[in-house]
Design a protein around this nucleic acid. Structure first.
Lengths: 146, 146
DNA sequence: GTGGCTGCAAATGGTTTGCACGACC
DNA sequence: GGTCGTGCAAACCATTTGCAGCCAC
């Protein structure tokens, strides 16, 4: 998404909530937005320090910012098998994940057939479906050829 | 599964691997097998202590036993959204999960349509599919009525 | 000015590890 | 008897929290 639009949204949200707009929250949001990969909290923290975006930022602030940004739905997180939590920018459309077990690459996709079948399953068990996650684990094209 | 059959399997595995058969491994396996729910490591540990199955067992032993039993595929684990890891007996047939966000109940199911579609998706991205996990989160019948 | 936010460091909590003793083959 | 496994406690590591100073409003 465009950086300006995101920052606009963040400003609105903090205003509505009566909170403060801070440089740190903007930085964290921007790093997650710019990244093509899903990132862990530590990766985000290191990126900010190493690239000199903010030498003084504290890891606690990164944790707090990520929790906040997820709460207000600007970003979202996924938890992989080993309990590793990664963040990505929230692009509204729900998607599932194809994860390469060799290089950890994550590809996102959407599939109507599966979404529909999930609704059927939930209904048949009397569940009111709220959310779902699906991860397909395998070896990607690139890694197969190595 | 029948207790005797499982113990038989465990005995064979440790023998083949040149390891030792211990009461603790048997107890942990048995607790996971008997449970109708998915259990966390701590729940398993507490169950063993509270029920007086083994007052002296250490939490570290429970961790080590679970890792071992999972490695030899007698049990399997799932990692929920918040990074909570739970164990269940390994019943061979792959299944997916319907999780109630209120009471944490987990229902297992198998669905052919989805399994097939997953294979198609993986193929279309050039992935060699090894495994998958799917969790549907919602409110179960019982909790909806509360 | 005042409340929320930050950075720091300390606390926390779940999990792992080192080690001496005990149990299995 | 030798080795592996256990229980204990200490170590570990990611995350959270308390707090004093800082900054946005």
């Amino acid at each position: 998404m465009k950086k300006e639009k995101l920052i606009e949204q963040l400003k609105q949200i903090v205003k509505i909530k009566g909170l403060k707009y801070t440089k740190q929250r903007e930085i964290v949001l921007e790093v997650v937005n710019k990244s093509k990969k899903h990132l862990t909290t530590e990766e985000i923290y290191n990126h900010i320090k190493k690239k000199g975006i903010d030498q003084n930022i504290g890891i606690a602030t990164v944790y707090r910012s990520l929790l906040f940004l997820e709460e207000v739905a600007l970003i979202s997180s996924i938890t992989l098998e080993k309990g590793i939590k990664k963040y990505e920018i929230n692009n509204e459309t729900h998607h599932d994940h194809l994860v390469c077990i060799r290089c950890d690459k994550i590809i996102e996709f959407i599939n109507e057939t599966i979404e529909n079948e999930q609704k059927n399953i939930a209904r048949s068990y009397g569940f009111e479906l709220m959310d779902h996650t699906m991860y397909l684990y395998g070896v990607c094209k690139d890694c197969k050829n190595d």
